[in-house]
């Protein structure tokens, strides 16, 4: 059970870590100042949540590693994030589409985790769920605004949805880790989140005048670590650069 729990906590923490890093790449580059600040704040929330998830992962593992060690000293094959969150930022619309597709899942997952039989997990979820709610409000609004915007913004949002939708299916595929945590009441069966997720997506896409791709294909391999996309390695060379170049460096 300890191995499964560690694995699960890495999945939660790696999602927020990798997405937080991706979103932080916008700092100083967003189309307008307000969006720059909003993206930086979102990234900050995600990194803060990462400290809690990976902090608990390190504690559960009991191998004398810290949250920082897990974030900065693991290599690609040890990361357990969804493939969706490691995908490149693309344009602003693509970044916000990725954010919305993640936020809608993240909120449902965190809401379910507030009932976890593991009180440490329930506490982190109760803290993070307020932030996720706020993120979803903004990303959904932005997807609607840009989807139902100009011909150009609509075209870009539809292209982003077509590109990213095949990465959504991975969120709902259970494996042995999920089975054992679900049996212990620690985490939900991911498949049970799907109906509510799709209902939310359909409502927002209808309002955004965007069409969901007619495909059930799902890229997989991120949350199991079996095969990440090529993008994660490039991200890690940036994120982990300091600890790689100057091992053990501290503030």
């Amino acid at each position: 059970m300890r191995d499964a729990l560690f694995e699960f906590l890495c999945r939660m923490g790696d999602n927020t870590l990798v997405l937080g890093h991706r979103v932080s790449e916008w700092c100083g580059h967003a189309p307008v100042l307000e969006e720059d600040i909003a993206l930086a704040n979102t990234a900050l929330d995600l990194i803060g949540q990462t400290q809690m998830w990976l902090g608990l992962a390190a504690e559960v593992e009991g191998a004398d590693r810290s949250a920082d060690d897990l974030a900065m000293l693991r290599d690609v094959w040890d990361f357990r994030n969804l493939l969706l969150v490691e995908q490149p930022n693309g344009d602003f619309g693509q970044t916000m589409m990725r954010q919305f597709l993640f936020d809608a899942w993240h909120l449902l997952m965190l809401q379910a985790l507030t009932d976890s039989t593991d009180t440490r997990i329930a506490a982190i979820a109760a803290k993070a769920v307020k932030e996720a709610q706020y993120h979803l409000e903004r990303s959904a609004d932005t997807v609607i605004g840009l989807g139902d915007g100009t011909a150009e913004s609509h075209r870009r949002m539809q292209a982003a949805l077509d590109l990213l939708w095949p990465y959504v299916g991975e969120m709902f595929v259970a494996d042995a880790v999920d089975d054992s945590l679900c049996a212990a009441g620690i985490a939900p069966d991911p498949a049970t989140l799907r109906a509510a997720y799709e209902a939310r997506i359909q409502t927002v896409m209808a309002e955004a005048t965007l069409t969901l791709p007619d495909t059930g294909f799902a890229h997989q391999g991120g949350r199991t670590g079996r095969q990440h996309s090529e993008h994660l390695g490039h991200l890690l060379t940036q994120m982990q650069w300091l600890q790689r170049a100057y091992p053990g460096a501290t503030w």
Binding site: E34, E35, I37, A38, N41, T42, L44, D45, Y134, E137, R138
Partner: peptide
């Protein structure tokens, strides 16, 4: 409302 986020995580603009 100008933006849902402001100068610190706890504020909106």
């Amino acid at each position: 409302r100008v933006s849902q986020f402001g100068s610190t995580p706890c504020k909106a603009h």
